[in-house]
């Protein structure tokens, strides 16, 4: 009986990277929006949210394409 360490490791790496990345980017966006009257922060925040939306769309595409 062989344990597929490679697949397990891939799941671990992908999950860690995508979770921490998504949450980090989204947090930056939320923090940017919370800062009052800073146009640059606002713009940056929307870029962050767009990146998150793209990641979610890719996730849904993964479900459908499977």
């Amino acid at each position: 009986m062989s344990i597929d360490w490679h697949a397990l490791g891939t799941v671990l790496a992908v999950t860690l990277l995508s979770t921490v990345g998504l949450v980090g980017v989204f947090t930056l966006g939320v923090v940017g929006l919370a800062r009052p009257a800073a146009a640059a922060a606002r713009g940056g925040a929307y870029v962050c949210f767009a990146a998150c939306a793209a990641a979610v769309a890719w996730g849904i595409w993964l479900i459908v394409a499977k």
Binding site: T19, V23, V30, A34
Partner: peptide, 30 residues
Amino acid sequence: IVAGLASTLATRLSYRLGRNADPAATAKGY
């Protein structure tokens, strides 16, 4: 374990990045 580890690290990071932000202003976004 994988899911727990990922969300522990993500929670840490999120609280670190947002440590200076006003919780009331950010809660809606989260």
